[in-house]
Design a binder for these strands. Structure first.
Lengths: 202, 202
DNA sequence: GTCTATATTGCGATAGAC
DNA sequence: GTCTATCGCAATATAGAC
C-alpha cells in the first residue's frame, strides 16, 4: 500500500457518507469501517473528525475557483449567463455531493461556513451581479431589473432542480440525457418569461 | 402548571434547535435543559427523540394542507401563480423554520422523508403543474413550455431567496419590508423574462 | 503507517421516588 | 406529571505495540 492510499480512501468514503447524512449523522467508527481503515487513521491523517470534514468542504468548493474561466469575457451578457447555468448543471453532474454540502451548510451551518462556504458563494454572486449590471448598462436587459434579485433567480433555477430531485423524481426525468433540454427550457423562461406575447391578456 | 405546558415548551424549543442544527446536532440533554424540563419528559410525551422530531415535521408541513384554499379557483393562471408565490413568502415569514426542515430533509433525508415530506411536496407540485397546464390550454402561457420545469422555476425562486439568506445578506436586504418588491420583481422576471424587447439583440 | 486496546465523555432511554 | 439517578452503549480521541 502506498502512503496516500488510506488517506484517500478515508477522504472519498467520508465525502460520500457526510454528503448523505451530514457531519453529525456519521460516526468515525462507521466511516473507518466503511473505508476498511483503522479508526485511528482519521486523527493521524486529518487531525480528527471535524478537521476531516473541513478538508472535504475545501475540496468540494475548490471548483468555484475556476468559475471565472468558464465565462467568456468577450461574450454577450446573456451568453455568459448561459455559460454559468450550463457549468452549474455540469458541476452537479461531475460532483453530485457538492450540492449536499452547500445546502447542508446553508441550512445547518457548521463553524466552517463563514470561512469556507460564505466567501466562495459571495465571490460567485458578485461575478454574476456584474454580468447582469453589464447587461443592463448595454441596454440588453431591462433597466428596471434589480441585479441581485435577478442573479438569485438564475442561481435558484440552476440549483433547485438538483436540490429537489428526491421530491420531484416522480414528476420529471432527472437523467443527464435531459440536461441540454433543461438548459434550453430554463434559458427560455429566464429570457422570455412565460406569457404568450401574441395573446397577452393581462 | 397545566398538563400541556411542558409538552409545548419541549415542542417549541426542539423546533428551534432542530431547525438550527438538525436532528443529530442536538442532544435531548441539551434540549431538555434549554426548555427547562426534565429529560425524561421527552419520552413521556413523545416516545423518544426521533418521535419528537417526527411530530415536529408533521406540524411544520401541516400548513401545506391549506395551500389549495389560498389559490382562488376563479382567478387567471398567472394570478394563481402570484398567489402561490405571495403565500410562499408569507409562509417563510410566519414560520422561519419550515425551510430548514424542508431542505434538511431534501439534502439529508431521515426515515420520515418518504412518509411526511415527499407526499406533501408532491401534492403541492401537482397543484402547480395543473395551474401551468391550465395556463397553456387557455393560451395564456406559451404552448411549448414544459409544465414541470416551469413549476420548478417558480418554486425555486420563491424558496431559494430564503434558503440562501446566510450567503447573500451582504448583497441584499432580506427584511420583510422588501417582500412586496421581491414578489413584484420575481413575477416580473417570471412573466416577461429579462430581455429588453425594445432592443432585443439576439 | 497501521493496528488494537482503552480512556473518557456523552448519548438516549427508563426505573422508581415523589 | 415530574424529577433524579442510573443503565448500557456509542461517541471521539489517543497511547502504545508492531
Amino acid at each position: 500500500m502506498l502512503k496516500k492510499d488510506y488517506r484517500n480512501r478515508l477522504l472519498s468514503t467520508a465525502t460520500l457518507l457526510f454528503a448523505e447524512r451530514g457531519l453529525n449523522g456519521v460516526s468515525i467508527r462507521e466511516l473507518s469501517k466503511a473505508a476498511g481503515v483503522s479508526i485511528s487513521m482519521i486523527s493521524y491523517y486529518f487531525g480528527g473528525k471535524e478537521a476531516l470534514y473541513s478538508a472535504i468542504l475545501k475540496e468540494q468548493f475548490s471548483c468555484f475557483d475556476y468559475m471565472e474561466q468558464i465565462i467568456n469575457k468577450d461574450s454577450a451578457p446573456l451568453a455568459k449567463i448561459r455559460d454559468y447555468i450550463r457549468w452549474t448543471i455540469k458541476r452537479h453532474r461531475d460532483n453530485p455531493y457538492l450540492l449536499r454540502y452547500y445546502t447542508s451548510e446553508l441550512t445547518n451551518p457548521t463553524k466552517y461556513f463563514s470561512t469556507i462556504v460564505q466567501p466562495t458563494i459571495g465571490n460567485a454572486i458578485q461575478m454574476l451581479v456584474e454580468i447582469v449590471e453589464e447587461g443592463i448598462s448595454l441596454g440588453e436587459f431591462r433597466e428596471e431589473l434589480n441585479p441581485v434579485d435577478t442573479v438569485l433567480v438564475m442561481a435558484a433555477m440552476a440549483n433547485y432542480y438538483f436540490l429537489s430531485t428526491h421530491a420531484t423524481e416522480k414528476f420529471i426525468n432527472h437523467s443527464p440525457d435531459r440536461d441540454e433540454e433543461l438548459l434550453t427550457n430554463y434559458m427560455d423562461i429566464f429570457t422570455k418569461g412565460i406569457v404568450n406575447q401574441q395573446e397577452k391578456s393581462n
